[in-house]
Design a binder for these strands. Structure first.
Lengths: 204, 204
DNA sequence: ACCTGAACACCGTTCAAGT
DNA sequence: ACCTGAACACCGTTCAAGT
């Protein structure tokens, strides 16, 4: 009998309490928002003491930071996939990028809000800041490739992409339930991106 | 002796507890953020029972809503003044509008964040939603006047202004301490607005 | 190494009562 | 009309102790 010392090796409750906390935490986050996430309630849910989390997250904020970190990594792989095809023109790639971001934010609104405030928080752990910056480096990259293809005016790609990315960020910020004034973001996106692309086009 | 019945007409502590709560609340908001605003602490600060606020605000959220409402009204008069001069061209007015908003948000970051989440909250009182909509109706208005002057392409002013306002909203969202990647928002604003104006210009 | 349980110092909300 | 004070049901965090 190999590998069967059930009551010895296995910890009190879970095989992986850390992950269980993140999963339950994310659920709680989307259900009631960050401010209503309760560590004691999470403990009850997982059949564990309300102080058990401390081995994995020093405090409540650390758990929220952990959730935000996961969010950034998930968003990054999503966005990376969205612009993977380099045979498309600049406008098409920009729309795909924006749409992927919008989809993510409407699918996980509370997580997106959490990521947003984490980015804003000066006391956020550097780990989190870096994850955020890696994620939002994709925009400037697409702009640079657009410049190489002659579809985008020359200049600092960071500044140029700012016009594009800020408008998408703002579109999401201004929306509720994935809508703005009742119109789905997906429909508005094309309109906005089109204006942005016109503004970024080389003057001839 | 007219007007001197001190101990009779005057209430237990304040002449205007409601306003005192708003003032202390706003201070607490900018100091520690909405989540750290404590009604009991406010009560202590004002030398009043921790349940006294209940006459004016049914619960904690109602006080926060009251602060957000004040914020929207203050922002609206600021923005209105910023674009009051109709003898300027579209780009100049748009920059003034954006700059005024950016200034407000860097001056009252926590209040702006509160207004932001209030707008997002589906359960927010209609009073608050209306105040928000009145405030952000200024953007489309400036666009419409730009259309009349022939400086902006024809089309739905709401959709066209969305490109402009969302980029400003996003610029603020993406910034920290009024800066983005270390560059002051005021400097970035011109760059972004210029792109937007180019994108909105009539094709000929 | 991983988790528990009691103790501590806070909360917001309710409600009967006081002036 | 305006405010108090006790009571209630929650919190997050700390820390010594258990397995």
């Amino acid at each position: 009998m190999i590998n069967v010392e059930k009551t010895k090796k296995r910890p009190y409750h879970h095989g992986d309490l850390r992950d269980a906390l993140l999963r339950a935490g994310e659920q709680a986050l989307e259900t009631g928002g960050a401010q209503n996430l309760s560590l004691r309630e999470l403990g009850r849910e997982l059949g564990v003491s309300h102080t058990a989390f401390r081995r994995y997250f020093v405090d409540r904020q650390a758990l929220l930071d952990g959730l935000a970190l996961e969010g950034f990594e998930r968003l990054r792989t999503t966005l990376t996939k969205a612009v993977a095809d380099r045979n498309q023109d600049f406008e098409a790639r920009l729309i795909k990028l924006a749409r992927a971001y919008v989809r993510f934010s409407t699918k996980y609104p509370a997580l997106t809000a959490l990521m947003f405030t984490a980015k804003h928080n000066p006391a956020a752990p550097p780990e989190l800041i870096e994850a955020s910056e890696r994620t939002f480096a994709i925009g400037p990259l697409v702009v640079e490739e657009g410049q190489v293809a002659g579809e985008v005016v020359q200049g600092d790609s960071l500044l140029l992409s700012l016009a594009a990315s800020s408008s998408v960020e703002g579109l999401i910020a201004m929306s509720r339930n994935g809508k703005f004034k009742g119109i789905p973001l997906d429909r508005l996106l094309g309109e906005v991106i089109q204006r942005i692309v016109l503004g970024l086009r080389p003057r001839n």
